[in-house]
Every structure is written in C-alpha cells, then in structure tokens.
Design a protein around this nucleic acid. Structure first.
Lengths: 236, 236
DNA sequence: GTCTATAGGCGGATAGAC
DNA sequence: GTCTATCCGCCTATAGAC
C-alpha cells in the first residue's frame, strides 16, 4: 500500500515537474501573459483537461512558476555567498550581486516573471513571500555580519527620513541601525535596476563590457550601504 | 482642395488619436502582450479591418504607443527640469528624478510598456530611440552644466573599467570625464530600479513613506555622480 | 487520471464590394 | 475608408465516460 502510494506520488511529482518545465519553455516563447494550459498540454501529448488534475487553474501554475523562480534565484545567490564565506563582507556582497545578475542572464524569462511588469489580472498570493525574500535576507545577513564585526560606515540620514527609516529597521532588522537598513533597501532596488536594464535591452548601444561595468556598480552599491570603508561602528 | 485635404487629414489625426487612447485604456486592463486590434475596434464601434488603414499591424500600434510613452515621460521630465532651471544642479537632478517617478505613478501601464519586461515577439524599431533618450539626455545636460560650472566630484575609476568608461564617454559625452559618464549610466539604471520596485509592488510591506524614501535615494544617486559635493574639477 | 466532446468565447489578417 | 465575410487559428473550463 505504501509502495503503491509511493509510486503514485512519484508519478505525480514527475508529471508536475514536466508540466512546469514545459511551461517555463513557453514562458520564453510567449511570455507569462500568454501562458496557456492548452499549449502546455499539447506539447506534452496530453489533453488540456488532464492538466487540471495538477493545477486547478492557469494562475496556480503561474504561482508555482513564480515560487520556483524565486527559489532558484535564491539558491544561486546563497550558493555564491557560501562559496565566498571565507571572504570579507565586501567580497560576499559582490558575489551575491553577481550571482543575481548571472542567474538573470541565464533565466531571462523567469527573471521577467518575478521582477518584470506584473502579469495583468494576476496577483501573487502571500505564499510567494518567503521565496521572494531570500536574496534580501542574504544581503541583510552580510550587513549584519559586517556590523557585528568591523562595523559599518553609516550613510547620513536626513531628519525627514528618520521616522520611516526607524520603522523599516524595526520591521526588517531591529539589530541594525536605521541608516543601514534604509541604504540596504535602496541598494537592493538599485541592484535590480542595473540587472533589469541590461536584461531588457536598455543598455544596448550604451554599455558594452557589461560584466566589468556591473562589477564596478556592485562595488558602488556596497559603498552606499557602508561596506566599503569598514570602521569600528560607534554602536557596536 | 487644400481644405478638403486638411479636413481629411484632421479626421485621420482624430481617429488615430482615438485608437491610441483606447489602446492605452486596454493596456491597463490586459497588458501589452494581449493588446488586440479587434478589441480596440470593438470598443470604438468600428470593425477590425478598418483599423488596418491606420496601423498596418498590431506591432505598429504598439510602436506608436511606446514612442508616445517615451515622449510623454520626456516632456514631464523636461518640464520639471525647466521649472527648476534657476536652482543648482542637485536640485535639478532631484526634480528630474521625481518627475520620472511621478510620471510612472501616474501612468503605470505605459511605464511597464517602456521599462518593464519586453513584449514577447515584439522588437522595438530604431525609431523609438530618440524618444527613449530624452530623460538620459536631460540628466547628461545637468552634469554638463555642473561640470562646466563648479566642477564635479569624480567617483574613482578602477583600472579594469577604464577602457569601457572611455568608450562610453566617447560615445555619449566626449566633453565629460569618463568617471562621470560611467557613474551617470549606473545612476540612470538605478533610478529606474527604484521606480520599478515601487511601481511593481516589490516595496509592499517594505517601504511605506515612499515619497520621502525616494527623495533621499535620488539625493544619494546625485552623490554617486559627483553632484553632491561640487568642487572645482581638475580638468575644467 | 485520462479521454472525448462541448460550451462559449477570443485573436490577426485578408479579399472584395461599396 | 469602411463594410461583410471569411480563413484559420487560439483560449479556459466543465461534463461525463472509461
């Protein structure tokens, strides 16, 4: 009985994976907005109604693809971070940034799915949040280590921003100074601006040696969050 | 004869505008990928084949919308810049950044059209390039003024980036130092990263007072291009 | 879980009359 | 420039047999 269940479960997992793989292929060809259960089924030699046993609707398939994409990106970034575990915070920061870029270049359509324009008529459920947070948490961890170690240069904080900065810090990382948390959120968005511009063609005719350019920009981002000239932080 | 032609031309312009307006409305509802000549015609009380007298294909309509969007954004940014013409470069830089954000918030779907994920199966023709360059040119102009006036702080340039930086400067602004041009390109991409994250929901549950946050981030970008602590540049 | 069949839509693009 | 008619394709989703 457990064997039969195991076999059935295995088959189900395999078919589910095949559906998602084919859906990812079609994402590349047609885009998320036109992702079609029917086309996936056709390509898999199934009939469309059969897919509804695996995904109750098109949107559920989309959600699965989004979570997979966030997780795949998160794993890449975590692996790169792990490989640089013995280096300093700046090196680890740059490693993570480059992992994000590398993953995006390798999976442009999945990148577009999670960081491009929202799919009209679709709103991601909250189940996507943990996967979506992985890269941000990684960057946060680097700053935390640096802060507890050598300390961080603190970007200046104008009075107008202080309340919001304190709110963000309380929400995201109560153990870090608000200056740092605010700078991180900005750097995080800016990182994806750089990646998106390269990926979506805005750098065509503008930046040629993109790898070198990006590496430098990632270093500038690190400077923005106080990683570049580490000094003993006043509060550490 | 010229009257008749004038009337016909006027009618043509009006119908063309009505088509684009309705198409923009549908952009908001369905997204660029699903923009459909048929649906536009239906809504306008026309028959689909009639639209082909105005736009030879769906892609041509899309191109027109893209150019309009770039121009609309460019005009907003130029107007904001003009209104701040008497202020210093930093104030003008921030005014332009805020105009970009403001336009994006007011026209989210057009923003997605030009800075979001590319529309699958569509590649923008070169005719979009001049309109697309307007904001970048504006920022370039601010830096040029600052450079010729008080000078610019020059962000440091590592040796590895120098060749590419010099190539970019030669292409985009031979009268500016490569350090500045490189920093501008990065800041330009980062600006759109900030705007995109706010617009596409990545700041949900993260940043609350987005206006204040953005203003501060725009100031940080200005610092990145050397606008914040202006000093007499060595080469000026 | 997979199939057939069906309902009830949607799309781009063209030909040819008026 | 607009119309009708047409070609040929596509989609989500469900019902009910096996």
């Amino acid at each position: 009985m457990s064997t039969a269940h195991g076999a059935r479960a295995r088959a189900r997992v395999e078919v589910t994976a095949a559906i998602k793989d084919e859906a990812r292929r079609q994402l590349a060809a047609e885009g998320a907005a036109k992702l079609s259960l029917r086309a996936v089924a056709r390509e898999l030699g199934m009939v469309s109604s059969a897919l509804y046993r695996y995904f109750p609707s098109r949107d559920d398939l989309l959600t699965a693809l989004i979570i997979d994409a966030y997780d795949s990106l998160g794993e890449s970034a975590e692996a790169a971070h792990g490989a640089a575990a013995d280096s300093g915070p700046l090196q680890r920061w740059i490693a993570v940034c480059e992992a994000v870029r590398g993953w995006a270049l390798a999976h442009p359509h999945e990148y577009a799915l999670i960081y491009g324009s929202p799919v009209p008529g679709y709103t991601a459920p909250d189940t996507t949040v943990p996967a979506a947070a992985r890269v941000g948490n990684l960057l946060l961890g680097i700053l935390r280590d640096a802060y507890r170690g050598l300390g961080l240069a603190r970007p200046p904080l104008p009075a107008a921003l202080r309340p919001e900065a304190e709110r963000m810090a309380a929400d995201l990382a109560p153990d870090l100074p608000p200056e740092t948390v605010t700078a991180l959120v900005a750097a995080w968005a800016q990182l994806y601006g750089l990646v998106g511009f390269e990926l979506f063609g805005q750098f065509n005719r503008v930046v040629e040696d993109r790898e070198t350019f990006f590496r430098h920009a990632a270093g500038q981002l690190a400077q923005g969050v106080g990683l570049v000239y580490p000094q003993r932080g006043p509060a550490s």
